[in-house]
Design a protein around this nucleic acid. Structure first.
Lengths: 186, 186
DNA sequence: CTATTCTTTTGACATAAATCAAAAACCAAT
DNA sequence: ATTGGTTTTTGATTTATGTCAAAAGAATAG
């Protein structure tokens, strides 16, 4: 998914506005297993994933990685709380699959937000979309059996199972990889 | 928490702007156990809770109520997906404790969003704040023991336990009320 | 192509929390 | 106060999922 098309699909920017906005982003190719941000750092970039796959995760006290979210093509990826509030990130951001991203830093995007009312509108729309997805995940995870949770995941992230490891998916779903492996057998 | 103070604490509206915005809200007193919206209806109002307590919940297939979120003083309450996307609500909204709210409908708030850039900014800020809270809940719930989840709840909603029933809290936390009762014993 | 490392599967067993059932405590209305 | 209804607590039992351990299977690098 191309950034320009994505933006236009949500808000009708004028050609010159669009150009101005796009010029604030920097296109980058990122290798597999790259860490974009580590826990404790302040996340200063927002990434639009054109292709590839990323995830956010954190470490439990016992050192286990817990996947928080997956970011595929056409999604904005960042450590939300850190990026927007300037606080140290609670999460790691990692690229799982060679990716092409458009990145923009906090200063620039804040300029865009104050320069263009439409941009602020876009930001609100995207936040709300993400909010409903996260709420959706809670419902799936909180009161469903391990099997139902897996089914939820297939809806939210179709064919993710061919792209990321069992362990990453299991921790996203709040179960052990052994359990997930047993569910898949059926 | 007063709506006017609340708005000013986040965005510096001019007196006339503020007045215009406040005039779009309607102050209402709402009785305990009032249902603001039922599942399946489209939620057309957004409520700012000045005092009292509300919750959102849904019914599982077996008919059990699952509390989704609590809304105390100084919070905006609505069925987010329904209100913003105009879809049938997945949740019920209920007032648990006699409340004073300021309500505004979708049409009016959209007018405010397009009229005032600052308003759109406010909307984005509030969405992001809610998003980080919801993410926070996932972390608390997904990988912690029942006892740790209860402790998370006391941080997010201090003294909620004196205000709402055990069953409502238990379902919010993803456990049975028996389990919660046993945790509290200690 | 082979060796090394990482990932997934399988098995046996342990455990936190759910379920079912009933008693106790608390409230509200007559 | 007495009744009826709801909410909370307690006990006994079941169950889904976790833990630990090891084997099987893939992937990656030399």
């Amino acid at each position: 998914m191309d950034l320009s098309d994505f933006l236009l699909s949500l808000v009708s920017f004028e050609p010159n506005e669009l150009e101005d906005i796009l010029s604030c982003f920097e296109k980058k190719k990122i290798k597999k297993n790259t860490m974009l941000i580590a826990e404790g750092e302040v996340c200063r970039e927002l990434y639009f994933v054109e292709s590839g796959m990323g995830r956010s995760y954190y470490l439990k006290e016992d050192g286990k990685e817990i996947t928080q979210w997956f970011f595929g093509s056409g999604k904005f990826m960042t450590s939300v709380d850190s990026f927007f509030q300037g606080r140290p990130s609670l999460y790691y951001l990692e690229i799982l699959e060679e990716a092409v991203v458009y990145s923009i830093n906090k200063t620039k995007i804040d300029e865009l937000f104050s320069k263009y009312h439409k941009m602020e509108h876009l930001g609100r729309q995207l936040s709300i979309e993400m909010l409903t997805k996260v709420v959706n995940k809670i419902n799936a995870i909180q009161f469903q059996t391990a099997k139902e949770r897996y089914e939820y995941m297939l809806e939210e992230f179709p064919n993710i199972s061919q792209r990321v490891s069992l362990g990453h998916i299991a921790s996203y779903l709040g179960m052990t990889q052994e359990t997930l492996s047993r569910i898949r057998r059926r």
